[in-house]
Amino acid sequence: MEVLTAKYEFSDNVLKITLSGEIDHHSAKAAREEIDLRILECKAGTVLIDLRNVGFMDSSGLGLILGRYTHAKEAGSVLKIVNPSPGAEKVLRMAGSDKIIPIIHRKNN
């Protein structure tokens, strides 16, 4: 399977986290702590999680996003989802998470 990787870019008070690969219970466990650490370190006003390269995501991925949303809020950051893949967006909308975490579609970046 595709291993889950995270790429971090921090500029202009925005931390962009690009996740690539498959998010399930197994891969989410490893990603959680690392992402939390970066959110704490950067203390950015906005945290963007880019899901365009996430080929698969189940409710563990949803749990990962919701957990990071809470963590970011405690760190004083606002978290948003950018360009989710169709599969990831279906899970997010089915669970109604888009009512608290905005989903943004952008053509560039």
Partner: peptide
Amino acid sequence: SGERGGMGFSI
């Protein structure tokens, strides 16, 4: 732990 969302059966 609250890290699993509780949406498995709903999905």
